[in-house]
Design a protein around this nucleic acid. Sequence first.
DNA 1: GCGACGATTTCG
DNA 2: GAAATCGTCGCT
Length: 209
Amino acid sequence: MTYPWLDAPAAAVSGTARSLLGWRVTANGVTVRLTEVEAYAGTGEDPASHAHRGPTPRTEIMFGPAGRAYLYFVFGVHWCLNIVCGREGEAAAVLLRAGEVVEGVDLALSRRGSVPTRDLARGPALLVVSLGVGREAYGTSMIDGTGPLTLAPPLEPVLPEAVEAGPRVGVASAHDVPWRFWITGDPTVSAYRRHVPRGAVRGAVSRRQ
DNA sequence: GCGACGATTTCG
DNA sequence: GAAATCGTCGCT
């Protein structure tokens, strides 16, 4: 199977992200049906993207061909998984934010601990834990069967009217860009949290909102 | 070399 | 609201 739209131009990455809703990602005995994703555009175009300032050792894989896995380690604690999109050199990507575990629930539960089934992959780092992947999956292809991750089409199509869009979660810039997409009403979609500066002044008035 | 901070999660 | 916890990246 081929995935022609994964390498659509980076300018179309929001459409690519939308199209990925309902697709299934399998790794290590667990399959997740994607219910929430975020699009990140290429170098110089999207201040919220890790690749915004050009390639670095960490983001190098994003500049390669589409369909490979870009994982990054955040807060010294968690891994998050992206599918590299766009053409070579463009560095667009789609962050897999949440999904429904549709196969291997018991295995996912063993990795996540005792949580409600709907919460198994309800968040980008939780999705990665359920799939049982980590650093070793960095840079592997998700579309040619050579790596631990496998991308597969939806069993049932996700209709356009079932998709909502809004601001991306936790990003420090580009709050106005509605490049987070999710399946309306799906219980496995994560809660929206806006970016909170780490060194925020405490006890001041302007803290909330 | 150094330090600020992060596409998060969990607990209080 | 705030801590956990460390790799990454740009340079006050």
